[in-house]
Design a protein around this nucleic acid. Sequence first.
RNA 1: AGCCCCGUGGUGUAGCGGCAGCAUAAGAGGCUCUGGACCUCUUGGCACCGGUUCAAAUCCGGUCGGGGCUACCA
Length: 561
Amino acid sequence: MGSGEPPARDFIRQMIDEDNRTGKHEGRVHTRFPPEPNGYLHIGHAKSICLNFGIAEEYGGLCNLRFDDTNPMKEEDKYVKAIIEDVKWLGFDWGDRLYFASDYFDQMYEYAVQLVKDGKAYVDDLSAEKISEYRGTLTTPGKESPHRDKSAEENLDLLERMKAGEFADGEKVLRARIDMSHRNMNMRDPVMYRILHATHHNTGDKWCIYPTYDWAHGLEDSIEGITHSICTLEFEDHRPLYDWYLDELGAYHPQQIEFARLNLTHTVMSKRKLLELVEDGYVNGWDDPRLPTISGMRRRGYPPAAIRSFCKRIGVAKVHSTVDFEFLEHCIREDLNMTAPRFMGVLRPLKVVLENYPEDKVEEMELMRNPEEPEAGTRKVPFSRVAYIERDDFMENPPKKFYRLAPGREVRFRNAYLVTCKEPVKENGEVVELRCTVDPETCGGDAPDGRKVRSTLHWVSAVHAIDAEVRLYDRPFTVPDPLGQKDTDFKTFVNPDSLEVLRSCKVEPAVGNLEPFDLFQFERLGYFCVDPDSTKQKLVLNRTVQLRDTWAKIQKRQQAK
RNA sequence: AGCCCCGUGGUGUAGCGGCAGCAUAAGAGGCUCUGGACCUCUUGGCACCGGUUCAAAUCCGGUCGGGGCUACCA
C-alpha cells in the first residue's frame, strides 16, 4: 500500500508501543473511524481514516467503521451511503464491523439510569439559555441549578417520563452531576440527554431523547472494546469528561488520543465552508473536482493509493500545521507516473500540414504504453499528412531557451518523424496553420545520420483525431489561507479561473475506448481522467494535475525581467 | 482574563542528554525521443532568556508567540 519507508514513530504509535510493552490492553489494538453522517468526507477525514485503519493494520488489530449518529436533526441516510462508498474507495475494509451509535441507545440509557441511581446525574428544568447563564464564564465559576439536588427516585421517574415522551423539546435535560465551578467548562454539569421529537434515520421514532456527543462517544468506544480512541485536538478539553463517565460507570475504558487535523493551502476543509461553496454555486456539487472532498478527488482522478501515500507522509502530530497543496500534487504525480498509461492529446490545436508526406498515406506508429513500465508494451497511433500540435509548441519569434517549433527549425514528432517548419500561414495576423516537411529517413523518430533535435512534440493525426472537451482545474482559492483574513469573507478569495473548459481538443483515437474514471497521461501535458459526464457522442476529460513544467518556470522568470 | 495544548529549514516531519536527518519546495548541473521521470550538488532550521550537565533541540524555570475551550453540535 502506497510507497516508501516504514511509517514514522509518531506520538500515537509511540503510545501504542508503550501500551503494548506494559500490556495495557493485552497487546490488542482496536481503533475506529467515527464519522457523523451529516456531510461528505474530505481529505482531512482521509488523514483520520488512514491513521485509524493504518494503525490497526500495522499492529495486526482491527478498525471499526462507526457512524456517530446521535443527532437526528442533522443526520441522513444518504450520507451514510456516501461515506461507506468513500472509505471503501480509499481502500479500507472494516469486515463485518459496521456500527452505529444508535445501535447502543438502549445500553446508553441503562448506563444513564445507573448514574442517576448513583446520584451522579439529574434531570434539570432549566432552559438552554439559563443553563448557559448558570455555567459561568472562562474566568468565573458557574452556579448550581436549583433542580440539582432531587432524590435519585425523583430523577429516575423524570428520566423515564422524558424517554416516554411526556415533555416537549427543550423542556428538560439529563445532566451529569460533576462540579459547577470546575476550571474545565466541560465538567460543569454537562448535558447527557436532550429531548428531540425527531425521526432518526436509523431508529425512526423509537426515541425522543438523544445522547450528546460527550456522553455517547466514550460509551460507544467502550462497548466496542476500542483500545485507542483517536480524535482531533479540539476534543482535548473533553478528555477529562470522557474519562469521568467511564470511571464513574466502572466501564471498560479506552484511551482517547488527540492529534492535529489536516489543513491544506489554497482550499478550505470545514463541512460548513464546503457547503457554502456548493450551495452558493461556486462549484458544481460535492463531487466537484476542485473540492478537497473524497468524491471530488475521485472525480478529479486522484488515485486512492496516492491519497494514502500523502496521508502517511504528512505525518501526525499535535502542532497545527498547513500542508502545501503542492505536496499533495507531488504525491499524485508520483503515483500516476508509475501507473498511468500514456496517450497523446492536443488541448489547443494548431494545424500542421506536412507538405512532402503523401496525401493518402497512413502509418501506424508504435509508442510505449508507459516508459516507466516497459512490460506494459506498446500501442499503435495513426500518423498522416495533416496533424495537430499544441499552439504553445510553436512561436514565430522564439525567445532564448525556447526549443520547440519555429520557422526553419527542426523538431521531432514523438515516435514519428523529424519535422521542419517552413512557414506559418496567417489570417488577420494570427497563425492558423503551419506548412512543414518531414525527413522521410527519420520514420520512428531517429535520424540515420545521428543528428539531434532539442525538442520532441506530441501530435495527433487530424483525420483520425477524436474531439474532446477537457476541463482544466486550478486551486479553488487564490490565496494560501482564505480563512486567514478575519474581516474578509473567505469566498472573496475564490479563484475565478479555477475551471477552464476547452471544447475543441483533439485526442488520439484510443482515448475513446476508455471508461469513466480511467486515469492516463497526455504526454507532456499532465494526468487526466475520463469524467462520468462523458457520453458516446461526447468525450469529457478532467485534468487531474499538470506535469511539472520547467519551460513555464523559465518563461515566468523571463517575463519577470 | 482562567484552564488546556503546542513552538525544529519556506512547508510537512524525525530526534527522547553526545555530529540536527528525511520529504517537499527553491537554485545549479547531468541524463533523456515527454522541458516529464530519474541522478548529483547547493541554499536553508532547533522562538527567546536563564538554570542543570563534561555535554541541551532534548531535562528544569521563565518570557514571547500560535491554537483550543463559555451548543440541549460533533
